[in-house]
């Protein structure tokens, strides 16, 4: 469903993604992890056709992200970390506009939107009459998630999807993506909340400085590195132990 081969991205002399390769079959949830600046978002942007790779290839549902960008975009959903929306549109205007871009007629789009707002506990009145700029962060995130799933794409990319969602919505969302995967959808889930990744994902990919560090089921990786938890494994692989010590030293400087 998703195939990445030797994917690279350079910004001038800076290498953001370096020779990244992996495959994801249909129905799998993959946790895509890495410290800040590891190249996760750049990779997701390349796979969603938002940025052109400087090397390598990637295909989504058999379509090349570089040469068949529109075909790829028709088959993916993406929840970007920024959660950007047009703030001066109402939630309903925004979602109907997005639906129209995927060729979904209004009479088909409306029931789908209603399904999502009912799932996310949003009120139709708010969606119709309030500008997105007035929504809370969580409400806005729900609208963005809806906009990514509205056209029922076979592959969905999530970049920090839980940001702003309350505990109840987060639980609901986790169940939703597991159900979507059971129905055969491929989910790429990028997040810093490692315990959620550990519980939800079938497989974990950790990258750092643009390079792939490990790739496999979370429990197997944890056992192989003798880490105990995914969080310890992540810290072990990405040099977080040093940061822990530095944080302790730094905190001590504030003590009288």
């Amino acid at each position: 469903m998703l195939s990445v081969k030797h994917l690279s991205k350079r910004f001038g002399a800076q290498v953001a993604v370096d020779d990244l390769s992996f495959e994801v079959p249909a129905g799998q949830i993959v946790g895509f992890l890495g410290p800040n600046g590891a190249g996760k978002t750049t990779t997701l942007r390349m796979l969603t056709g938002m940025t052109q790779p400087t090397g390598g290839t990637a295909t989504v549902c058999g379509f090349d992200v570089l040469s068949q960008t529109i075909e790829v975009k028709q088959r993916i959903g993406f929840v970007p970390e920024s959660g950007a929306v047009y703030e001066s549109l109402t939630g309903l205007e925004f979602l109907e506009m997005i639906a129209a871009l995927y060729g979904i007629p209004q009479e088909t789009a409306r029931p789908r939107i209603e399904q999502f707002i009912s799932f996310f506990d949003l009120s139709m009145d708010t969606l119709k009459n309030k500008m997105l700029g007035a929504y809370s962060k969580g409400m806005r995130r729900k609208v963005v998630i809806t906009s990514a799933l509205l056209h029922n794409p076979p592959v969905v990319f999530f970049d920090e999807p839980l940001e702003g969602l309350d505990a109840n919505a987060s639980v609901g969302f986790k169940t939703l993506i597991q159900t979507l995967a059971h129905e055969g959808k491929t989910i790429i889930y990028s997040s810093h909340i490692l315990d959620v990744v550990e519980r939800v994902c079938d497989r974990v990919i950790i990258i750092d400085k643009g390079k792939l560090l490990v790739d496999g089921p979370a429990d197997e990786l944890v056992a192989a590195h003798n880490s105990g938890t995914l969080e310890r494994l992540f810290i072990q692989l990405t040099g977080g132990e040093q940061l822990e010590r530095r944080a302790e030293d730094f905190a001590k400087t504030f003590l009288p």
């Binding site: 047009y86 703030e87 001066s88 549109l89 109402t90 205007e93 506009m97 119709k128 009459n129 309030k130 500008m131 997105l132 700029g133 007035a134």
Partner: peptide
């Protein structure tokens, strides 16, 4: 979309549809 956004502005300060 672009005409609506141009006339209403890219951001809104928590305003309702009628006032923007």
């Amino acid at each position: 979309l672009f005409l609506t956004v141009f006339l209403r502005g890219h951001t809104s300060r928590g305003l309702s549809k009628e006032t923007v």
